[in-house]
Computed example of a mutant assay.
Amino acid sequence: MFKRICIYILGIFILGLGLVLNSKTGLGVSPIISVPFACSQMSSLSFGRCTSIAYIVLVIIQLLVYRKITLSVLLQIPFSYLFGLLIDFYNALLPISHPSFIVAFFILLLAIFCTALGAFLMVNMELIVNPGDGYVNAFAKVTGKPFGKVKLITDCIMITITLVLSLSLAGHIYGLGLGTILAAMLTGTTISVLDHFLGRQLAVIVLRSKKG
């Protein structure tokens, strides 16, 4: 269990780094954080605080979809708060501002890899689910649709919400661009590659933890 928890925490730190790097490129953020990023740009709230609020909303959505209160879902609330603090920590730590397109593109690729690796480690340790994945999984279970198809639909909804909020409140678009498209296309593919090479080893760690 100790090894399992360490890998899970490592995944959280890598995921947070990936999301912040993505936001620093100026090329557009991944769909799941596009709404909190846009809100942070249009208000006095930090990116991390907006992320925490958005994640808690996703937790509430899960409770409504499942129509019951479970500990596994409720634990996502403190996770959301702590993850928001991590986002703000990375945001202050990384002094990246207006990089050239070439530099931004390479940072984007690194961000996508970190996001995929962090999510992969967290999901495979089967502990507290990231609310961004949890609400997608809730809709997938209730509707009986594949996770990937539901993920595509929810990403499109997030992008639409970001567009509406940005244009109605600020008059121009925040957080959407080439990076949004590449993140949507490459994150899942990268996770599949990681699962092919590392999935079995992580499954063994979880299995031994449960037996112990």
Rank of each mutant, 00 (worst) to 15 (best):
I107A: 02
S72C: 08
S209I: 01
L108S: 00
P36A: 07
S80D: 10
I153D: 00
V164Q: 03
R200M: 08
G177I: 08
A38P: 09
L117W: 07
K211H: 13
D133C: 01
C50F: 04
Q41S: 13
S72N: 15
F89R: 06
V193D: 03
F105Q: 06
L71T: 10
L75D: 03
S46Q: 06
L127R: 02
L167S: 04
K210Y: 08
L109F: 12
L75N: 05
L64K: 11
T162Q: 02
P146V: 03
L15Q: 08
S43F: 02
A38G: 10
F47D: 04
I87W: 00
L15N: 07
L109T: 10
L21K: 05
K24T: 07
T51I: 05
V142E: 13
S52M: 15
I5G: 03
I159L: 02
S100I: 07
G177Q: 06
I5H: 02
I157M: 11
A138L: 04
K24H: 04
C50W: 05
A104D: 04
I61M: 15
I69S: 11
L207Q: 15
V150L: 00
Q41W: 00
T70G: 14
T189H: 12
I69T: 13
Y8M: 11
L165Q: 06
L58A: 14
T70D: 12
L167N: 04
A111W: 09
L45P: 04
T162P: 04
G212M: 11
G18V: 12
L17E: 05
V204Q: 14
R4A: 10
F105M: 13
L194R: 11
L117K: 07
I61Q: 10
N130L: 15
S43K: 00
I112T: 01
K151V: 00
Q41D: 06
C6T: 15
L45W: 12
K149H: 09
L63C: 10
T162F: 01
S44R: 10
F105K: 07
S97T: 13
E126F: 08
I87F: 07
I5Q: 06
T154K: 11
F13E: 01
R208M: 12
